[in-house]
């Protein structure tokens, strides 16, 4: 009966994932490998960026710098992703019964880790798929942006290369992301114990699910859990890059939602 409960928890979390994330790993992989039929627009230099921007946003404003255009695109996509992660969190059994202040804390610290996990599914070694715009931005082009903008995405590609070797599918990722959100050691939690109990159930469900879904990879849970520490590091570094951009660019405006997430974060 215990295993049946865990399997049912896994199903609930997976269904919440499918209901809330518009671009799943399965869909992203189909587009990236050309199985989906329609190919994305490839953004590999300034000219293709200008063409894509005028296609999606209307007239290209020559006054605006490519770096700011790219970063605003990135901010916009982040806010959308944060909304998706929040709706997903709200559907995790038990999350809604937590103190509202703890829900806020879990999201403040968890949304970026969740987001960079999901973005790994949209990345290959050559670039990242931005399917809301049906575009594929190359890694080489992102590297050519001036500093510190060139340092925004590159560490995420390095993480994705390592993370993607685990070959988790969407049903695994659903539980992995739920476990990231329900983390009992975020700073300032009022009832860490209650959250640890919820995370414990998710991790048990994840363990059982991996055993059934990947019977040939008995160490997969341990490997996945190690990646959680890498994600925390990735987010700390990301917050530093955002501060560097803020300091270096007068024209830069951070979205208010991202502002409140980064403020007093680490």
């Amino acid at each position: 009966p215990h295993e049946a409960n865990l399997a049912s928890l896994s199903r609930l979390v997976y269904s919440a994932y499918l209901n809330n994330f518009t671009l799943t790993k399965e869909k992203a992989r189909a587009i990236l490998t050309g199985r989906a039929g329609q190919s994305p627009v490839v953004i590999h230099d300034m000219e293709s960026l200008k063409n894509a921007e005028s296609l999606f946003l209307g007239k290209w404003n020559i006054e605006r710098e490519a770096e700011l255009v790219m970063f605003n695109r990135y901010q916009h996509r982040s806010v959308e992703a944060i909304c998706e992660v929040t709706e997903f969190a709200k559907s995790i059994p038990g999350f809604g019964s937590l103190d509202l202040n703890d829900q806020v804390t879990l999201l403040k610290y968890g949304v970026h880790e969740a987001m960079f996990t999901l973005w790994s599914a949209y990345m290959n070694k050559d670039g990242i798929l931005v399917a809301t715009n049906n575009s594929f931005v190359t890694r080489e082009f992102l590297k050519t942006l001036r500093k510190p903008y060139s340092s925004v995405i590159e560490p995420k590609f390095e993480f994705a290369a390592r993370f993607n070797t685990l070959e988790l599918d969407d049903s695994d990722l659903a539980l992995f992301v739920a476990a990231i959100i329900l983390c009992g050691d975020r700073p300032g939690l009022l009832d860490a114990h209650q959250i640890e109990e919820l995370q414990d159930s998710i991790l048990q469900a994840f363990h059982l699910h991996l055993r059934n879904n990947h019977p040939d990879a008995p160490r997969l849970l341990a490997h996945a859990l190690q990646k959680m520490a890498d994600l925390r590091q990735l987010v700390t570094e990301h917050a530093d890059v955002v501060v560097a951009i803020k300091q270096s660019d007068a024209a830069f405006a951070l979205h208010p939602l991202l502002q409140e997430i980064y403020e007093d974060m680490y």
Binding site: V79, I82, E87, Q103, V104, D264
Partner: peptide, 20 residues
């Protein structure tokens, strides 16, 4: 609480909230 008012709104009202 006041410092995280958009996150609060997201949790309570969803992403259709006008603040987002």
């Amino acid at each position: 609480t006041e410092r995280h008012k958009i996150l609060h709104k997201l949790l309570q009202d969803g992403s259709s909230s006008p603040d987002i």
